[in-house]
Design a protein around this nucleic acid. Structure first.
Lengths: 225, 225
DNA sequence: CAGACATTCAACATATCACTTGAATGATGT
DNA sequence: ACATCATTCAAGTGATATGTTGAATGTCTG
């Protein structure tokens, strides 16, 4: 089929790239970056049928992007390699820099981006050391339990309005979620600002925090439910 | 079509990834990393028809991976962004780490890889400063003319046997070509070793050298044809 | 302006991909 | 062993991608 080793190698690379070439699979990778997930749990989160999700996962596995293990009757998938996060970061960087459409969507959705300047990881570390900010994790409770920024408070976005009492209005809030393109923290910041809070986003999500070698805190699964 | 901004953004990212998801387009990007090229010149190099090449290029352009400009009756394409090289590097890193097939091809083709340990850029810089090595650029003369490692000698692979006289047998030769997956330098090293030379490959090719911010030398188009 | 030439477009055949549905597999627990 | 449940497989349909061919576009040259 292919003439030389170069063709064969590039053909393999193309397989990996094709596996990334689907909106749904990219979204699945974002979720898997939060931690292991079973097929059905993933299917629910990305809004696809179980069978379809399973096939996408196998596509990703053939491309070497995810790995799986069996645990009882569940098959748990995870990113095959921390490098997959870096690959997605490169992909988004190139797309954001060269596709006008990406910038257009950002502006259209996040109208008041002037005040949205994200907080860098270094800045957040500095300010938590100084005790100046409340770190807010707006992901679902199970993702929080699997690992979060040390000292962070978990209020899933859907419960934010109901649990505002847990947030000191006099402290700046820095919210984060799954990654640089996850909308949860954007919406949390918008909601908090509407209530008079001083709030900003962390530049990336938890997976990037972890990939940067910064410490995680686990457990502390307060909420039940 | 897509529900939220996240879906829309990921859909754009997927477009970029799909553009990378073709053996031929990846090969075209490797060539464009050497410098601007017209459609027909590229078509010849990758072995595709002109019309087909043109369509692939437009696919790449829509994905923001290449840009073009008109020069007389030629349309010259180039990488849109130096980040595209980084994206390809991430892609190949993930593929090499997670796909057994990639390693298999490497081993099958480059049987004696033990002695093939590549030279790093830093090591090459050090050894050229010390005057210990001949740097050999085995790419075609026009690519050499568009930019090469300072002090390098250009002997296109096809002319290597005929021009061995130009290489001092007592100096180590470090050969490089288009990139980490370009076979020219592998074959040059094998040929030189068969003739008794001490020869090794540079770990990457010229585009990576340039991307690392190292100096280039231009012109010196000695050979004519 | 006419001819030459590089590139792009349009239309087509073939192959691959995405998603659905319903059945098959494989591990668990009674 | 049997029933249960998560996951995977298989088959089918509509959509998308690839590569070919021949014509159209647009720019330079004479």
């Amino acid at each position: 089929m292919s003439k030389g080793p170069k063709q064969a190698i590039y053909s393999e690379f193309a397989t990996v790239a094709r596996a990334l070439g689907s909106q749904h699979r990219l979204e699945m990778l974002e979720h898997l970056a939060q931690g292991e997930r079973g097929v059905e749990a993933l299917a629910t989160r990305v809004g696809l049928s179980v069978a379809n999700t399973s096939q996408h996962l196998q596509h990703l596995r053939r491309a070497g992007l995810v790995a799986s293990r069996r645990d009882g009757k569940f098959v748990l998938y995870r990113l095959a390699d921390i490098g997959v996060l870096g690959l997605m970061a490169s992909l988004s960087a190139v797309a954001a820099r060269n596709l006008a459409e990406v910038e257009r969507i950002r502006l259209a959705y996040f109208a008041d981006r002037d005040g949205m300047e994200p907080v860098s990881r270094e800045e957040l570390l500095q300010r938590t050391r100084d005790g100046l900010v409340t770190v807010l994790d707006v992901r679902p409770a199970d993702e929080f339990a699997a690992g979060h920024v040390p000292g962070a408070v978990n209020i899933p976005l859907g419960e934010l309005e109901a649990r505002l009492a847990g947030l000191d209005p006099d402290r700046e809030v820095v919210a984060y979620c799954r990654g640089p393109w996850c909308v949860l923290s954007f919406e949390a910041v918008a909601a908090l600002r509407a209530r008079g809070y001083t709030a900003r986003r962390l530049e990336d999500g938890l997976p990037e925090w972890q990939a940067a070698g910064l410490p995680l805190e686990r457990g502390t699964f307060e909420g039940g439910r």
